[in-house]
Amino acid sequence: MNKITDRSKGSALSMSDLDERVTQLGHEGMPNRDLWPGIEQAINPRDEVKESWFTARLPRFVPASIAMTALSITTTAAVLIILNFIPRQTEQPQNTVYQYEMENAIRALERSYQSETQQMLVRYQSRPALTDNWQQQLQDLHEARQTVISAMLESPENMQFIRMLKNIHQQELMIIERSHERELDSI
């Protein structure tokens, strides 16, 4: 029999033992929460109207770039508002210091990002983007940004998250810029 190891303690597991255990693995795991309400909402045609509320109300002449940038600014504003309402923890002085510094860092970074995005909004307002998937890329980055900000608030002592947030901001701006600069070059 093909033994995996010659360890002296206990009996070594053979590959056939492993294969046998694998065949006995269950296929009946259940999620911790009820997934049906989310599925039901997504497959219900009435909710498609709700999903398209934002885009349905955009005037037809507004380029997608402006819509996405506006969405980006809204996200930033939401983050800043949330930060203003976070209760201060007084019981743990060390954590409070970290928390305070991290919140300040997030505020500063988001304000700077918002300012740069607004400048781009003005610069590119009349130019549609040429690339097809840049909105999707931007959407992915929005999600990443939210994840990193949540992580920053949960682990305020981890300074690496600041670099990560900066990195995301740079990438968001770069995507908007690149997708429009090409057209500037071609004019």
Binding site: I4, T5, R7, G10, S11, A12, L13, M15
Partner: peptide, 13 residues
């Protein structure tokens, strides 16, 4: 397979 077998063996010891 190798990693799993090693992991299980390590657990048994």
């Amino acid at each position: 397979r190798k990693l799993l077998a090693e992991g299980l063996n390590e657990q048994n010891n």
